[in-house]
Amino acid sequence: MGKQAGSSFLEHIRPRRIKLGALQLRATFCLGGFSFLAFIVLTITGVILLFYYQPGDKAFASLSEIDSALPYGGLIRSLHFWSGQMMVISVFLHMIRVVWSKAYRSLSEFNWITGVILLGLTVILDYSGYLLRGGQESGAASSVGQTLLKALPGGKGWAAIFFGQSSPVNGSTLDIFVWHVFILAGIAGFLQMYHFWRIRKDGGVRPL
């Protein structure tokens, strides 16, 4: 039996056929693609910042050094920050568009769940990125997050795993750094690839 069209990733990148309605702007408003573009910018700028950022007690000082000593360091930080905010907004609007157009029905129920998980990951990534800034603001945000997490069943253990030994004056820790840079970002990247592949495999987006 021959391989079905859309069953491989290469055919997803350049499919043989696509629904005519899926080519219309109002079918997606390009929100999914814009979210992925923001993720790419976050990845590139994040890799650059990795060479100079130091988590923990030196977090705030290292960011100040990036702004003042690294050529275009302030620009790179700004791109990283605003791309994160735009990704949160675009993913949220994308979810609204999916609900509005009822695109989660039929063959897309599991992909809808994947999208919900991606929305949660995006928010957590944005939150953990704020903690990595260091300083009293991130310390206060860390304290609030730990209090909320500990209120859940088994949350005390998860708070210790995720936040590490954070303090009210500094929310940046090595634990948060590892979660933000490697674990959460890696899972988000993988789920986005699966999400795009599944959309194309199910026949493209559903037009409004």
Rank of each mutant, 00 (worst) to 15 (best):
S62A: 12
D202E: 14
A103M: 10
R198G: 01
S68C: 00
Y194A: 14
S172D: 09
G134V: 08
I176G: 05
A69N: 10
F177S: 14
M86S: 13
G186H: 09
A188M: 12
I183C: 02
V98Y: 04
V47P: 00
S106H: 10
S128W: 00
L79S: 02
F92G: 13
M193H: 02
A103K: 11
E11R: 09
S167E: 12
H12M: 15
A59V: 03
V123R: 05
G33Y: 05
H80C: 09
I117Q: 01
W82G: 01
L119Q: 06
L119H: 07
G120Q: 06
V144Q: 02
G84S: 13
Q165A: 15
Q146S: 11
G6I: 04
S138Q: 05
Q192L: 15
A38F: 15
G56A: 06
A5Q: 13
L49G: 04
F36M: 11
I44D: 02
V47S: 07
G145W: 08
F182H: 12
R133P: 00
G21N: 10
W197D: 02
F60A: 15
L191V: 01
A160N: 07
V47M: 11
G2Q: 10
I124T: 14
I199Y: 00
L25G: 00
H195Y: 08
F177G: 00
K201P: 00
I89N: 00
V169H: 11
G204E: 03
G164N: 06
V41E: 12
G135Q: 05
V116R: 04
G154C: 04
S62G: 08
L31I: 09
G129P: 08
L125H: 02
F190P: 00
R26S: 10
G6V: 02
R16S: 12
S142G: 14
V205S: 09
P153D: 08
G154S: 06
I13G: 02
Y104A: 03
C30A: 14
D57L: 11
L131M: 10
K3E: 12
V88R: 02
R97E: 06
Y127V: 11
F51G: 03
I96Q: 04
S90Q: 01
F162E: 00
I187F: 13
M86R: 00
I113F: 08
H180S: 07
A185I: 01
L131A: 08
M193A: 12
R198P: 01
M87S: 07
Q85F: 09
Q85C: 13
